[in-house]
Write a protein that binds this DNA or RNA. Sequence first.
DNA 1: AATTAAATTTAGACAAACCTAAAAAAAATA
DNA 2: TATTTTTTTTAGGTTTGTCTAAATTTAATT
Lengths: 219, 219
Amino acid sequence: MLNYSTSEENHIKAIYHLQKDGSVTTNELAAELKTRPASITDMMKKLRTKKLVHYEAYKGFRLTAEGRKLALIIIRRHRLWEFFLAEKLKFSWEEVHEVAEDLEHVSSKKLIDKLDEYLGFPRFDPHGDPIPDAQGRIETSKQVCLTELPPGKQGIVCYVSDQSSGMLELLGHKKIGMGTRVEIRKRFSYDQSMEIKVKQQITTISGDLARNIFVKYDE
Amino acid sequence: MLNYSTSEENHIKAIYHLQKDGSVTTNELAAELKTRPASITDMMKKLRTKKLVHYEAYKGFRLTAEGRKLALIIIRRHRLWEFFLAEKLKFSWEEVHEVAEDLEHVSSKKLIDKLDEYLGFPRFDPHGDPIPDAQGRIETSKQVCLTELPPGKQGIVCYVSDQSSGMLELLGHKKIGMGTRVEIRKRFSYDQSMEIKVKQQITTISGDLARNIFVKYDE
DNA sequence: AATTAAATTTAGACAAACCTAAAAAAAATA
DNA sequence: TATTTTTTTTAGGTTTGTCTAAATTTAATT
Ligand SMILES: [Mn+2]
Ligand SMILES: [Mn+2]
Ligand SMILES: [Mn+2]
Ligand SMILES: [Mn+2]
């Protein structure tokens, strides 16, 4: 019912990641997958007959609704395994991707749904990317530490790792809480402190504080 | 350094399981892997050039030392995943094998060693089969049917061949499970029933039950 | 608009892993 | 031992997924 080869899955996933809007080109996809353009053309013809991509010669390609569904299944597997590797097996966040590249192709739905449950239905992988749920729904935002919020982007505070009373006092004073919108105005590399805009006002926060605040933002 | 295809790995593992002693035949292996004899011949030629099997035309094949080492690595992966699926994800005994058939081919050594550690270095998989350690050492301790456990010897339950719900109910009632210590006190040849000591208590079990329980013991 | 450059597709090939059918070798039986 | 049966190998094919080199289409530049 849902049996695609590793290569087909890798192609589908790569198209998903490349197609922000508009369509993906042969060269782009070949570069992404480290294959040759001719191989991409061959694969696109196959995926077209399987109704996973829209494709006309010389006109690039995009996923069909079904192709997108498949992409989200693969991304769900990938990110759940990454979470498992980081959280349970204590891999560092740089190491998880490579191993998840293989694990993502083990296709048992039951395995993935049970893994999801075992992990407590995590919403973001170790890189802050959202994990699609069992129905293929995915959040549009990415979760990162405030220190990595691109300056100028609106972030929404969604997690604070240190919840000591000292931290809470400081957060209260800065008027920062769950759901608060923040935006980085200026960062100082000397001590990682930064000026941020909170509720129409500019405040300065230390690197120590920033490192404990996590925000969601749309890319 | 250690990069074999899924098909090569499946062949090596199957030979390991079939070669109790003496060598494995083409038809045996074809039956085991559900392929055709001609395909086996092709693969044996390839594995011979890779120095994983000893093979001469018409004379069957056995693993080389290196082939055996590889087999144990694959079996280690397989059984650790089975343990993970049963223990952590709450898969039932019958379900784990199929999924582990795929997971066993993900070849990161670090993944497997960290998984092993995370699981607490389990020594047996959910079917009672021993799990090779990171050095490829595998438990040699004999596994016999309870009917063959020498009276007076301590046995440890490690495998139950019938996993029907009726059997599970009976085992639960007798307080017998994986790892339970048992000792035969008296055997009745008339109906093969026996009195055994379980958790400081004497119980009687039927021959039908005893024949489905396997134990390991030190000689 | 004509020419050049870049992107894409086609043509033809190859390795991996399987297959069927026929030939050859080994084993069993008369 | 001669004959028959079984097992194994060889010969030749197919599918999947990749490649290179050449042809074609599209895009960019004079
Ligand atoms: Mn992949
Ligand atoms: Mn990730
Ligand atoms: Mn397998
Ligand atoms: Mn097992």
